[in-house]
Design a protein around this nucleic acid. Structure first.
Lengths: 177, 177
DNA sequence: GGTGAATGCTTCGAGTTCGAAGCACATGAC
DNA sequence: GTCATGTGCTTCGAACTCGAAGCATTCACC
């Protein structure tokens, strides 16, 4: 697929196109495979797995704010509200009011959630080894991380060009008006 | 996020985890940004854009089989059927019966589709430059493509562990039964 | 050339996602 | 204290995706 049709000045070169499609397609395909693996092995969505992993492996207390999880796992608040409801019904997480902000909701992993996570992890890791890491050498993996982490940081730092400001702190509402 | 909890032998090392999350998160975030850009600028989904681009830029005839597009753009036939319907209603593509196979359907881009694609391209390229390529040097871009293309090829070659065989040609139905 | 299996696409129902609107609480100015 | 504005989360409706089932055609083999 070449974008080189009527926009010489704005075109991407072939290498850039290759990188773009390789990134998008490999991530999409990997997610699809991982998703079906998680679904059949542990009855979890990729999103649900990621929520459980964030809560159960990263957080010392096993709990996080809804907003924080939403920003990482899904790209809308309502999306996380929906999943939190699903997972709460399944007994994997609990919702508690935030102690320091009555508007806030804190999501905590339950024992059942930890058990489900533990049951999903080995197959998940196995799938990653098989699909993602088999064609990559150890230095390759490091290089890949070193290339993509700055991209990720850069995108997270760049505001979506026209959207709700939604800066965590230190927002700049209106420069002159 | 460290997976290093109870599965020493199966664990991924930190570098692998970094690469995994950087890949998944950067691609997901990039897709989200690109999607909103395409939506506001040209009223197109990422999937629809990709269909138009494949038909309008890659194919000399401006047309492709449904199955071929489905495998590239979406991960189910029904998903492409839905999008083909949407885009046909919008006048961007046309459906024709395949001449050499009465079951097949060929999707062709229309003049309106080419016009829509042309209107979307500059902003799309601009968004990619801004978000993806700004933090990467030219050699970086080449390295990224060189790392991810083998991963993509490897995944496309690996059957989904338990699914319909669905090989284009040369299937091996039943070894002994 | 006839029969059974495979293939190409569509229809259908269920599940997931998003954005906009809404509600409750918090924060800052006065 | 009060008011206006901002923030955290939920509800709601619309759109999208998938897998399974179904229909029509083709292929392979006898």
């Amino acid at each position: 697929m070449s974008f080189a049709v009527p926009y010489d000045a704005l075109d991407l070169d072939d290498t850039q196109l290759r990188a773009y499609f390789a990134l998008m397609d490999s991530a999409a395909l990997l997610r699809h495979r991982v998703e079906t693996q998680l679904r059949t092995a542990a009855d979890l969505t990729y999103v649900q797995f990621k929520v459980l992993a964030r809560l159960g492996l990263d957080s010392p207390t096993g709990s996080l704010r809804m907003t924080e999880l939403a920003d990482e796992v899904v790209y809308s608040r309502s999306g996380l509200t929906y999943q939190a409801g699903q997972m709460e019904n399944a007994g994997l997480v609990e919702r508690q009011p935030s102690p320091d902000d009555d508007r806030g909701v804190i999501l905590s992993i339950t024992d059942a959630g930890r058990a489900r996570l533990a049951s999903a992890l080995p197959g998940h890791v196995e799938e990653l080894r098989e699909l993602l890491f088999k064609p990559l050498s150890d230095p390759d993996v490091l290089t890949l991380a070193a290339l993509l982490e700055p991209v990720l940081d850069h995108m997270r730092a760049s505001p979506p060009r026209s959207a709700t400001p939604r800066r965590r702190k230190g927002h700049v509402p209106n420069p002159s008006t």
